[in-house]
Design a binder for these strands. Structure first.
Lengths: 194, 194
DNA sequence: TCCATTCTTGAATGTGCGCTCAAGATACGC
DNA sequence: GCGTATCTTGAGCGCACATTCAAGAATGGA
């Protein structure tokens, strides 16, 4: 008997980063062994192949994002305040140049989904769950009387998600400093003020 | 003397399609020779290499999109009517499953930009020009008194562009039939009604 | 007609890739 | 402490890729 020596979460976060920077196809196994510190054999033993590693990285990414979402929307502050903080956080993340700005889910969706039904389904499901979480918070804001609108929570959540997709793509065009913030503020206004 | 035998625009549109479906990295030269009907030698003679073909395809794409934009915004109808038609057109394009739904510019931006400054600059410039065109039309709507708002035309154009980026990403999650239309309508309302 | 020029053709090339596997290292059960 | 099961290691495999190039085909000028 002997247990695996590496820390799976750390490995997956390294792989995640590599994939976000170079994309799936251009990230070679050599890149991945360097990024994760694992040797090819270990990677193939633990994740079957490069694609398996991507899938595992996507799952880890989802988990991390879930946790992040939880921290932003826990606590007793007003829901709309939380939304503002969440948006600001995303804007800052997009602006920080040194990490990959892109979201692994949308990046992988754009690159591999058309060729791979299983990954497409996995990503789509993750994005859907995120959207559901947002819809729940909007619903909560309504029942708290923070938000008075006729509009359906699901519709608003969809629009919010669309806005963030757009923001992320916009960020890749390297806009000037305050542009993303302005766009995010406008998005907030359009959704959360009557 | 002897002139080249192939039709450059046709070749570029074929290459464009191939790149949109599979992405740059996964589209092999074999795919490209099949798609374009050209032999490797001809491609290398005309475009230097695979990357050169991508660049040429991006230029052609920009030209085609410019022409399309021109046809939508020419004529004497109200500018806002033209915007609605333009949005509807984009939604329909996203919904048609048989062509690649993605825009070559954003797809290439997401895949290769971080590794290639020159292509990044080319794409970003193209997207900027598109945005400028939209801002001009919004300005025109204002001076026609179709649109009464304090908001800056450039800001509105940016928001419009962001919305379409978002719409395109959203489309890749294969939403139900009328979702994209609803999102587009909401976007139209948020921008063009006071 | 014939030559010069240019374009077309596609087999061949070298390279870098994803992946394998057998040998070595390590930790647990007894 | 020994045997065994499992994990780690990394050189090496075959393959598919982007790219080349020399021979062949077609064109136009004289």
């Amino acid at each position: 008997m002997r247990n695996a020596e590496f820390d799976q979460e750390k490995v997956l976060r390294s792989a995640m980063n590599a994939f976000m920077h170079k994309g799936f196809a251009k990230t070679s196994m050599q890149d991945l062994t360097k990024a994760t510190g694992l040797h090819p054999g270990s990677i193939y033993c633990a994740f079957e192949n490069k694609r398996g590693l991507l899938i595992a990285a996507i799952r880890q990414y989802r988990e991390d994002r879930n946790t992040e979402f939880g921290t932003f929307f826990s606590g007793k502050a007003a829901v709309l305040t939380k939304f503002k903080a969440y948006l600001d956080h995303i804007v800052k993340e997009c602006q920080s140049c040194d990490t990959a700005q892109a979201c692994l889910l949308t990046k992988a969706l754009s690159e591999v989904a058309e060729q791979d039904e299983e990954i497409q389904a996995l990503i789509t499901e993750n994005l859907r769950l995120w959207q559901v979480g947002i819809a729940e918070q909007i619903e909560l804001a309504k029942s708290n009387n923070e938000l008075n609108t006729q509009k359906d929570s699901c519709h608003l959540a969809r629009y919010f998600v669309m806005g963030i997709y757009g923001l992320r793509t916009f960020a890749q065009t390297r806009p000037e400093a305050d542009v993303l913030k302005q766009l995010a503020d406008q998005l907030y206004q359009d959704i959360f003020t009557v």
